[in-house]
């Protein structure tokens, strides 16, 4: 088995787990969103890696080129990135409002205040 043939996928999983760890182990809501960002980008890398063809060219039709990388994952991920920033913005807006309502963005303190009443 060739290590290079799975290297990209393993890195994707490492990145995904690092992001996942930040999401579940950190209490700060902004940090959680950063973790989610890492997780999301790892999925992008997985898709783009799956679309790569060895010795392929970028999928822009050119004279004399016959092997191209798969354009379909590119389309999916290109739109996913912009959708991702728009939804992250909604998350950040909610964090800002949570801060106004609770005076903190630490999960434990928010839960304490919720349980107190």
């Amino acid at each position: 088995m060739d290590i290079a043939s799975y290297f990209n996928y393993w890195i994707v999983i490492v990145l995904m787990m690092l992001g996942f760890y930040i999401v579940i182990a950190r209490g700060n809501l902004v940090k959680k969103l950063i973790g989610l960002n890492i997780f999301q980008t790892s999925v992008f890398i997985l898709y783009i890696s799956a679309g790569k063809v060895s010795d392929g060219a970028a999928p822009i039709l050119t004279e004399g080129v016959s092997v191209y990388s798969n354009p379909l994952p590119h389309v999916l991920i290109l739109t996913a990135i912009v959708v991702g920033i728009a939804t992250t913005a909604v998350g950040l807006a909610l964090v800002a409002r949570i801060h106004e309502a609770y005076g903190t963005v630490e999960e434990s303190q928010i839960l304490e205040q919720d349980n107190a009443c």
């Binding site: 809501l29 902004v30 969103l33 950063i34 960002n37 980008t41 992008f44 783009i48 679309g51 790569k52 392929g56 060219a57 970028a58 999928p59 822009i60 191209y68 990388s69 994952p73 590119h74 991920i77 290109l78 990135i81 912009v82 991702g84 920033i85 992250t88 913005a89 950040l92 964090v95 800002a96 801060h99 963005v105």
Partner: peptide, 28 residues
């Protein structure tokens, strides 16, 4: 070879996303 994706990620991942995060941090 995903040049279109790279374009988008450079503007979003390195530019807009950290900026929105910074503005949120300025609030919280």
């Amino acid at each position: 070879d995903a040049v279109d994706v790279a374009f988008t990620e450079a503007a979003v991942g390195a530019g807009v996303s950290p900026l929105l995060l910074l503005m949120t941090v300025a609030l919280v």
